[in-house]
Amino acid sequence: MKLKHKEKIDSVDVITGGLESLGYICNESLATAVYVACQLEKPILVEGPAGVGKTELAKVTAEYLGVPLIRLQCYEGLDEAKALYEWKYGKQLLYTQVLKEQLGDILRGAEGLAESVRRLHQFGDIFYSKEFLEARPLLKALWEPNGCILLIDEIDKADQEFESFLLELLSDYQISVPEIGTVKAVTRPVVLLTSNNTREIGDALKRRCLHLYIPFPDAALEERIISVRVPELAADLRTRLVAFVQGLRETDLKKHPAVSETIDWARTLLLLHADQLDADLVRNTLNVLLKFQEDVERVQPDLWQLLNKANR
């Protein structure tokens, strides 16, 4: 990637520091991934449980590198027209209406059909040119003059066909549009794909990407994240809160609380002016952490135990 500030991707440590200054605490493997991706110009496929900061990584990286973030949210039924380009049909129609009179002038005096068609051919495919092309995220990313971060979010939600469609983009940073030919990237973007693993991603796609797995953070890292994100929270409450969440992750739940939930909970406690974790408070705010009623019910009986462990 062509960058204004090349020194920003000089080494893993520089990237770690840079992301940290923007409030994104990452471990070394994340920074290594970003570093390698920038240097080798390869896309990163980020996997991991929901809410560990996969999408956030793309946002922060874009901010850090000072380039725009172009995001493509995947869903079932996503097709080329939504992801790549579309013809501006309305504009095409309007122009043909406006140019109708002109057309009369041009064709005046032409002898026979063949002559008329020949004259029309002189104008080429004006209606299928770049001016009438509505660029969607993928094409936009390729046209971005100074590079960008292209975030293809939740690729597992898209159909398998779409995955294959992406292969050309991911390996050669180019895309074929039948009417105007192959579009090559002006500056190669940094591509991040995220997946929540609702289905297995194809091998062909995986082969073209760096594969990064972001697990739930350990206690120390999570504490640092909270301290940066919710700095107002008292240190000892923070330790307990993190210990409690870590304890929850060890229990057998339908959905474990992620970092984003821990942050939300920390904010909630701050709002309630809590200065310690007591059973009532936790019980009343448990729905911030757990998003399924059956999980809440499952945790209730063990609440004391979990709290004791966390308060120790």
Binding site: E28, T32, V36, I44, E47, L210, H211
Partner: peptide
Amino acid sequence: QGLSLVLAKSH
């Protein structure tokens, strides 16, 4: 970590 990025592609 670097090698793990390119050589191992699932959890």
